[in-house]
Design a protein around this nucleic acid. Structure first.
Length: 161
DNA sequence: GCCAACGTTGGC
DNA sequence: GCCAACGTTGGC
Protein backbone atom coordinates (compact mmCIF):
# COMPACT_ATOMS: atom_id res chain seq x y z
CA UNK A 1 0.00 0.00 0.00
CA UNK A 2 1.21 3.52 -0.68
CA UNK A 3 1.74 5.07 2.74
CA UNK A 4 -0.10 8.31 2.11
CA UNK A 5 -1.19 8.81 -1.47
CA UNK A 6 -2.59 12.22 -2.23
CA UNK A 7 -5.30 11.11 -4.57
CA UNK A 8 -6.73 7.89 -5.90
CA UNK A 9 -7.57 6.65 -9.36
CA UNK A 10 -9.03 3.70 -11.18
CA UNK A 11 -7.26 2.78 -14.40
CA UNK A 12 -8.69 0.26 -16.87
CA UNK A 13 -6.47 -2.11 -18.76
CA UNK A 14 -7.44 -4.94 -21.05
CA UNK A 15 -5.64 -8.00 -19.68
CA UNK A 16 -4.94 -9.05 -23.26
CA UNK A 17 -2.91 -5.85 -23.58
CA UNK A 18 -1.48 -5.50 -20.10
CA UNK A 19 -2.70 -7.63 -17.21
CA UNK A 20 -1.76 -7.32 -13.55
CA UNK A 21 0.73 -10.16 -14.13
CA UNK A 22 2.22 -8.33 -17.10
CA UNK A 23 2.69 -5.34 -14.81
CA UNK A 24 4.38 -7.57 -12.22
CA UNK A 25 6.78 -8.94 -14.83
CA UNK A 26 7.65 -5.58 -16.33
CA UNK A 27 11.05 -3.99 -15.56
CA UNK A 28 10.80 -2.30 -12.16
CA UNK A 29 7.21 -3.61 -12.20
CA UNK A 30 6.41 -0.40 -14.03
CA UNK A 31 4.70 0.22 -17.35
CA UNK A 32 4.18 3.38 -19.40
CA UNK A 33 0.43 3.97 -19.68
CA UNK A 34 0.59 4.59 -23.43
CA UNK A 35 -2.27 4.74 -25.85
CA UNK A 36 -4.77 6.95 -24.05
CA UNK A 37 -6.56 8.91 -26.76
CA UNK A 38 -9.32 10.50 -24.73
CA UNK A 39 -8.91 14.08 -23.60
CA UNK A 40 -10.53 13.68 -20.21
CA UNK A 41 -8.34 10.72 -19.33
CA UNK A 42 -5.27 12.54 -20.64
CA UNK A 43 -6.10 15.58 -18.54
CA UNK A 44 -6.28 13.46 -15.41
CA UNK A 45 -2.79 12.13 -16.08
CA UNK A 46 -1.31 15.43 -17.19
CA UNK A 47 -2.92 17.83 -14.75
CA UNK A 48 -4.10 15.98 -11.69
CA UNK A 49 -1.98 12.89 -11.06
CA UNK A 50 0.97 13.12 -8.71
CA UNK A 51 3.72 10.56 -8.14
CA UNK A 52 2.62 8.27 -5.35
CA UNK A 53 -1.09 8.57 -6.03
CA UNK A 54 -2.93 5.30 -5.47
CA UNK A 55 -4.24 3.34 -8.45
CA UNK A 56 -6.84 0.60 -8.63
CA UNK A 57 -5.71 -1.60 -11.52
CA UNK A 58 -8.87 -2.72 -13.31
CA UNK A 59 -9.24 -5.46 -15.91
CA UNK A 60 -11.77 -4.51 -18.60
CA UNK A 61 -13.14 -6.12 -21.75
CA UNK A 62 -12.51 -9.63 -20.49
CA UNK A 63 -14.32 -12.63 -19.05
CA UNK A 64 -14.04 -11.40 -15.47
CA UNK A 65 -13.88 -7.62 -15.31
CA UNK A 66 -12.85 -6.17 -11.96
CA UNK A 67 -10.06 -4.81 -9.79
CA UNK A 68 -7.01 -7.05 -10.02
CA UNK A 69 -4.45 -5.18 -7.96
CA UNK A 70 -3.10 -1.99 -6.45
CA UNK A 71 -0.58 0.26 -8.15
CA UNK A 72 0.77 3.76 -7.88
CA UNK A 73 1.64 6.65 -10.14
CA UNK A 74 5.39 6.33 -10.68
CA UNK A 75 6.17 9.74 -12.13
CA UNK A 76 4.89 12.84 -13.87
CA UNK A 77 3.23 12.78 -17.28
CA UNK A 78 5.37 12.98 -20.42
CA UNK A 79 4.66 12.80 -24.17
CA UNK A 80 3.43 9.51 -25.61
CA UNK A 81 5.95 8.49 -28.29
CA UNK A 82 3.46 6.22 -30.06
CA UNK A 83 1.47 9.21 -31.32
CA UNK A 84 4.33 10.02 -33.73
CA UNK A 85 4.92 6.44 -34.87
CA UNK A 86 3.11 5.72 -38.15
CA UNK A 87 3.48 2.01 -37.49
CA UNK A 88 1.72 2.23 -34.15
CA UNK A 89 -1.96 1.57 -33.64
CA UNK A 90 -1.89 4.71 -31.52
CA UNK A 91 -0.44 6.90 -34.25
CA UNK A 92 -2.07 10.35 -34.38
CA UNK A 93 -1.14 12.17 -37.60
CA UNK A 94 -2.75 15.33 -36.29
CA UNK A 95 -0.45 15.63 -33.32
CA UNK A 96 2.26 18.26 -33.71
CA UNK A 97 5.69 17.13 -32.41
CA UNK A 98 6.28 20.70 -31.23
CA UNK A 99 3.16 20.47 -29.10
CA UNK A 100 2.39 16.81 -28.44
CA UNK A 101 -1.29 16.15 -27.99
CA UNK A 102 -1.03 12.95 -25.94
CA UNK A 103 0.92 12.16 -22.83
CA UNK A 104 0.89 9.56 -20.10
CA UNK A 105 2.30 8.60 -16.72
CA UNK A 106 4.14 5.47 -15.68
CA UNK A 107 2.35 3.06 -13.33
CA UNK A 108 4.13 0.81 -10.82
CA UNK A 109 2.74 -2.32 -9.20
CA UNK A 110 2.11 -2.15 -5.47
CA UNK A 111 0.36 -5.47 -4.94
CA UNK A 112 -1.55 -8.02 -6.92
CA UNK A 113 -4.80 -8.75 -5.07
CA UNK A 114 -7.62 -11.19 -5.40
CA UNK A 115 -9.97 -10.24 -8.20
CA UNK A 116 -12.68 -7.92 -6.89
CA UNK A 117 -15.17 -8.53 -9.65
CA UNK A 118 -17.39 -5.90 -11.17
CA UNK A 119 -20.34 -7.99 -10.05
CA UNK A 120 -19.17 -7.89 -6.43
CA UNK A 121 -18.43 -4.17 -6.68
CA UNK A 122 -22.01 -3.56 -7.75
CA UNK A 123 -23.25 -5.42 -4.67
CA UNK A 124 -21.40 -3.11 -2.27
CA UNK A 125 -23.35 0.02 -1.31
CA UNK A 126 -20.15 1.81 -0.26
CA UNK A 127 -18.93 1.59 -3.86
CA UNK A 128 -22.16 2.71 -5.53
CA UNK A 129 -20.74 6.19 -6.09
CA UNK A 130 -17.79 4.92 -8.10
CA UNK A 131 -17.75 6.38 -11.59
CA UNK A 132 -16.70 3.08 -13.12
CA UNK A 133 -20.04 1.62 -12.01
CA UNK A 134 -22.12 4.30 -13.65
CA UNK A 135 -24.10 3.04 -16.63
CA UNK A 136 -22.39 3.73 -19.90
CA UNK A 137 -19.12 4.89 -18.38
CA UNK A 138 -16.34 4.28 -20.86
CA UNK A 139 -13.70 6.54 -19.39
CA UNK A 140 -10.52 4.53 -18.92
CA UNK A 141 -9.24 6.64 -16.02
CA UNK A 142 -11.54 7.85 -13.26
CA UNK A 143 -10.91 9.55 -9.90
CA UNK A 144 -11.65 7.51 -6.78
CA UNK A 145 -12.55 9.09 -3.43
CA UNK A 146 -10.70 8.25 -0.23
CA UNK A 147 -13.88 6.62 1.09
CA UNK A 148 -14.19 4.47 -2.04
CA UNK A 149 -10.52 3.52 -1.82
CA UNK A 150 -10.96 2.43 1.80
CA UNK A 151 -14.06 0.45 0.97
CA UNK A 152 -12.24 -1.33 -1.86
CA UNK A 153 -9.33 -2.09 0.45
CA UNK A 154 -11.72 -3.58 3.01
CA UNK A 155 -13.33 -5.79 0.37
CA UNK A 156 -9.93 -6.93 -0.89
CA UNK A 157 -9.08 -8.00 2.65
CA UNK A 158 -12.20 -10.14 2.95
CA UNK A 159 -13.17 -13.28 1.04
CA UNK A 160 -15.03 -13.00 -2.26
CA UNK A 161 -18.77 -12.60 -1.86
C1' DG B 1 -21.92 -10.91 -31.43
C1' DC B 2 -25.14 -7.49 -29.66
C1' DC B 3 -26.12 -3.08 -28.38
C1' DA B 4 -26.37 1.11 -25.39
C1' DA B 5 -23.72 4.96 -24.27
C1' DC B 6 -21.06 8.54 -25.53
C1' DG B 7 -16.89 11.03 -27.54
C1' DT B 8 -15.33 12.79 -31.98
C1' DT B 9 -15.72 14.41 -36.60
C1' DG B 10 -17.12 17.17 -40.23
C1' DG B 11 -20.68 19.45 -43.14
C1' DC B 12 -23.25 23.35 -43.00
C1' DG C 1 -21.56 26.46 -33.14
C1' DC C 2 -25.10 22.98 -34.18
C1' DC C 3 -25.96 18.31 -34.78
C1' DA C 4 -26.18 13.93 -37.40
C1' DA C 5 -23.21 10.27 -38.57
C1' DC C 6 -19.76 7.48 -37.20
C1' DG C 7 -16.49 4.89 -34.35
C1' DT C 8 -15.24 2.98 -29.96
C1' DT C 9 -15.90 1.07 -25.42
C1' DG C 10 -17.08 -2.53 -22.68
C1' DG C 11 -20.54 -5.35 -20.20
C1' DC C 12 -23.35 -9.04 -21.17
Amino acid sequence: MPSAPGQFWLMKSEPGECSIDDLGHAPQQTVPWIGVRNYQARNFMRDAMRPGDGVLFYHSSCAEPGIAGLAEVAGPAYPDATQFDPASAYHDPKSDPAAPRWCHVDVRLVAKTRLLSLREMRLCPALSSMLVLKPGNRLSITPVSAAEWSAVAALLNSPAA
